[in-house]
Design a protein around this nucleic acid. Sequence first.
DNA 1: GGGTAAAAGTTTAACGTTTAACTCATTCTA
DNA 2: TAGAATGAGTTAAACGTTAAACTTTTACCC
Lengths: 337, 337
Amino acid sequence: MVTIRDIAEATGVSATTVSNVIHGKDNRVSAETIQKINEAIKELGYVPNMSARSLVSSSSRVIGFVNHVITRENTNFMEDPFHSAAIGAIEATLRENGYFLMLRTVENAEELVTFLQRWNMDGLFFTGIFKDKFFDSLAGLHIPVVLLDSYVHTSGFCNVGLEDFTGSYNATKHLIEKGHRHIGFASPNIKDGGVLQERFLGYKSALAEAGIPFEKGIVFQQEMDLNSCRLICNDIVEHPELTGLVVSADIMAAGIMTGLKEKGKRIPDDISIVGFDDISLSQLVDPPLTTIHQDMNLKGRLAVDFMLQLLSGKTLDTTEITLSTRLVERSSVKDLR
Amino acid sequence: MVTIRDIAEATGVSATTVSNVIHGKDNRVSAETIQKINEAIKELGYVPNMSARSLVSSSSRVIGFVNHVITRENTNFMEDPFHSAAIGAIEATLRENGYFLMLRTVENAEELVTFLQRWNMDGLFFTGIFKDKFFDSLAGLHIPVVLLDSYVHTSGFCNVGLEDFTGSYNATKHLIEKGHRHIGFASPNIKDGGVLQERFLGYKSALAEAGIPFEKGIVFQQEMDLNSCRLICNDIVEHPELTGLVVSADIMAAGIMTGLKEKGKRIPDDISIVGFDDISLSQLVDPPLTTIHQDMNLKGRLAVDFMLQLLSGKTLDTTEITLSTRLVERSSVKDLR
DNA sequence: GGGTAAAAGTTTAACGTTTAACTCATTCTA
DNA sequence: TAGAATGAGTTAAACGTTAAACTTTTACCC
């Protein structure tokens, strides 16, 4: 391994001078020396050792992307399509700015804090569901934190979210406006304080506003895979009064469409469906899915914008961004009027 | 920050003893002292500093997952659904074994080597297309390397791949057996030495074997997004003789199906389609897509298996695994016989 | 020509951890 | 009972980098 000291020796200066040149503090160094040092760096193939740097400067240039899972069972980081979309964008931007990205799943606050401390992390992206007190331990670390899709509004953290409530409200309202009165809600398991709960509340709110009584029996919760969707379909067809269905995630909507078609139901003639997310799949299913569009890529970019600003020590004018959604009408909803 | 020295002071022993206890080298320490130290660690909330550890032991416990891109243009790490699937599995397993995962895109070998050296990486997962000489610099680092879907068989590296050629050969043969004689090939841009090239060669080989002349004019290359697929469809409909199409990725197959349906073509009546990958979407499109199935999750798990074995210093019986594929018949192929 | 400032460095200590080599009792063995 | 072995540690150096505090030489000002 080529060290800074090797460069120093090769050029006949001290290690500090080499370090200064590397860090662009070259106002203290003659042009001639700078050139000699840079040449030696090229020649010998010097690569800075981040461990040493991090140790002495207590800044590691590492940013963590941490996903909080409740249990270890389904611990796959990438199950949510948002993650994949966001991480790609985040990695690219961070890299351009000289930062590194570490990926991690944690089960609890302690694990998270330990992770950050171990590596002297410079910043944190955080997704998942959590209680306020989860963050007490985080706040003490005094590093930039950007929350993604969090409904915890702890002061001091940046937050990039989505109008989940309003989006789902609009999805439901759209069905109501098309003359539907019996509208079910299907969703992956709704957890307290999460995105899906907001979407559920938006659905209920739209019903209430239209004077339609809420019925527990037509709320269907299951995993997102095709087989679980088929199970849901068994339940759905037992409610022949249903003409419309709001589904809180497009992947699930697609699964349910498949399941219903297998049972001989026609979409939208027998049942209308509105999804949520507008993933690329949604225009590919048959019929193309009417859904609530969100810009996941933008969400990722805004998150990393926040992070970079925080890292540069700027004081922010805003710490909270809630992206809006819009309804994309395709062909999965029938007009009953 | 609580250091090992704080623990040492609190318990009245030396730093070395604390270090020994932490690392389970406690044969040199009395049971009583061990307990006192462990209590102090809990009490004071000691967290080991990985930078310091890495600096002195030249092992960082960090594994890199690096994707090689040819240009910086489309630099999103996650565009390939395989990556998301694999990374989740890899992160989980590495974490369980006390390793950390760093994500990174690189443009060339130099960038890769620098990345690995900066952090003293313990291992590397690598995906992407590359020339043999790309690896010469890698070999000198003497760290475990696991290649994913690589068609470079440099000795010394582990390799987890797929029977891309055979899969695509079978897809094409399937159409031929169903009586098709005019079979096109659609694909994202085929690059030398990559997965897509193998799939292309498999297609050609099946044609050749059946005595069907290869026609350049019915090979369609485009990006994977829906609009590019529509462009392809413009071309496709200008070849009315085509009754079958092999598509080298399901995402694209779905896009093409949509595009063709928009143009009034019926699938499979007017044109039959066979995809590749069997992503979850493939059973959701209409008609459900006949495709070549691969187990991406298994690919990720095998890769991390390799890595863990290499890290533990075992000598491996195999360093190369090529997963097989299988044809999944759904409803996108018409029997012409 | 005395004092100040600038230019171009150097020296030293520190960051937190590990490792190799050492110490000093006590116990065992022949 | 001398010597070896064991148990339970300790000391000191090292890993590569940086930051703060120095040093030396030359130039400049009035």
